[in-house]
Design a protein around this nucleic acid. Structure first.
Lengths: 103, 103
DNA sequence: TATCTTCATAAGTCATGACTTATTATAAGC
DNA sequence: GCTTATAATAAGTCATGACTTATGAAGATA
């Protein structure tokens, strides 16, 4: 499984995306997330593990708690992937225009 | 299932992403994709259906064939989603700087 | 020390989804 | 008209993954 696979797979699950969005809004502990979301604490931990392996979040111990925050680098590869098609589509559009010019 | 869910779910599968990338590079038929990829023709058709429902590709009949091409609008919502965190992180950074200024 | 909180992991269940082969419909070419 | 090519759908298999409850480890607090 490539790194890109892990990234897209991590973002595919709605619950996991909700956790990510929440953590992105404000850094918080597992218990805090578990209280706010309609799934159990282990489910939250499992989702966080997946998000961490995709480098979308970081964690930092704070006493008995563990504070999760967004990893600022994490979305970079997604943006890069997206930009590939952006420029690709621009190139295709430009090529189409130039072909039309030949008429 | 929301539209955003469909979009992320569609991009989660590596085979489906490969199909999308291939179609984005050059519009082509189902048979052409099936010949190039290590899965059966029905598998290709099923993936294309998912991509189409996520508005990532369009299709157009051409005789007995059906030509699939990228839907230029399709990646817009993904970009929008991404930009939310871009600005969010900028705001967080700015807030952090201003808090530091208070020292 | 004993208790309580926090969190990760283990183990098991269940639904989903990515494939396959088989089949059908439609269009093209002989 | 008959055969061939193309593509969608049906039906079935199998792996994965999103949950659950149970449990244990590590830190805080009395």
């Amino acid at each position: 499984m490539t790194y890109e696979d892990r990234l897209f797979a991590a973002l595919a699950d709605p619950t996991r995306r909700a956790i990510f969005e929440r953590v992105a809004g404000r850094r918080q502990s597992v218990a805090e997330l578990a209280r706010a979301m309609p799934v159990s604490q282990p489910a939250i931990s499992q989702h966080l593990k997946v998000l961490k392996e995709a480098r979308l979040v970081r964690d930092e111990p704070s006493g008995a708690r563990r504070i999760y925050s967004i990893d600022p680098e994490g979305l970079g590869p997604l943006r890069a992937w997206l930009d590939r098609f952006w420029t690709e589509q621009l190139a295709a559009f430009k090529a189409a225009v130039e072909t039309a010019d030949e008429s």
